[in-house]
Write a protein that binds this DNA or RNA. Structure first.
Lengths: 188, 188
DNA sequence: CTTATAATTAACCGGTGTTCAATTAAATTC
DNA sequence: GAATTTAATTGAACACCGGTTAATTATAAG
């Protein structure tokens, strides 16, 4: 193969990010290798190092881009004209969906303590909880205590956290997720 | 060094288990190597293979031993003469206490992603849940659905899982734990 | 034509789980 | 007590895989 691709086939930063994202999400940080990413991109593993300093840097780039997605999803729901109870239900479910469709991101936010990556990522894990709590607080008209909101959050987190460690996708456990959300709303 | 140790310094299965447990707990499954275990034991890495078939087998042996602890704690509560509602509360709280007082064990039991080991291990978390579910089922006189029980379990798991990744001890979050249990019992 | 750019490839270095012939201590037999 | 057998341990070797670097080469741009 030629030592440099033709213009149209040039490796773009975006293409690397997209492929890396997919693999990180699928297999997690540690079980995704630069060589895997390169193979999936059909390029050499060395090429990636032209665009990203190292593996942690690549991961950081992927995650920091996706980090605002959850906030956006919550905003979207808040902007619908659903009834507030339904909005609440939708947010709970969306939270689970997001967590399980971005398992490795979720791990990073709430569960990972890898020092190698930690150095690169100075983010607040509770940032996404704040967004969540604000929304729920608004939707219940302030009728819910801070404490109960935290319990609710932890109970959702339990679902995500558990299924993060299985190979099941969100689609696989969607019905269970809906049941879990119903269970929690019953107690509110 | 001689090719075989003297009788008193012979490598015992128990010694390997104890050292391996410590390392698995400290660093997790994937970041603990057979060579590390051997180094800590001051023996050769080959020696371990005389006592255990392979790494997953060693890990399995460590974890299966520790799993029975939780079952015992539940039995203890069931054998008290508390009222069934109080037993329920006590079991929930004990579950959290166990999880947070054995954070690394808990991680090993419920939060390990390794495919290689999950095959070996998946039986145990489920078995441990069965114990939990049986107890709750008995205490509610069969009034609770299987589904709701699983939700309850996941909601407890959420609490443990979250605080597993903080430096806080069970004592630090005991009040919060009691609140969480109350929150969940309210919804039952 | 020259230069900057972007890709390839080999290589380095350290790590992994696992196997196995060789070795030695202990146990058993004579 | 000596000879033999058995059991436990060693350490080298195997066959990988990992991140990262650097020299090299081919393309595009100026």
């Amino acid at each position: 193969m030629s030592a440099r691709r033709t213009a149209k086939e040039e490796l773009s930063r975006e293409a690397i990010l997209d492929t890396a994202r997919q693999l990180f999400i699928e297999n997690g940080y540690e079980k995704t290798s630069m060589r895997q990413v390169a193979t999936a991109l059909q390029c050499s593993h060395g090429a990636i190092y032209y665009h990203f300093k190292n593996k942690a840097d690549l991961f950081q780039a992927v995650v920091s881009h996706d980090f605002s997605k959850l906030d956006l999803l919550i905003d979207e729901i808040m902007d619908t004209d659903l009834h507030s109870t339904e909005k609440r239900r939708a947010i709970f479910l969306k939270y689970i969906e997001f967590g399980l469709q971005n398992k490795s991101h979720y791990e990073l936010m709430f569960m990972l303590k890898d020092q190698e990556v930690q150095g690169y990522l100075q983010m607040h894990p509770n940032q996404s909880y704040e967004k969540f709590a604000d929304a729920i607080y608004t939707l219940t008209g302030g009728a819910m205590t801070i404490k109960d909101m935290w319990c609710l959050f932890l109970s959702l987190h339990g679902f995500v956290s558990y299924y993060c460690y299985t190979s099941q996708t969100y689609e696989d456990v969607q019905v269970l997720a809906e049941g879990h959300v119903d269970f929690l709303m019953k107690g509110m």
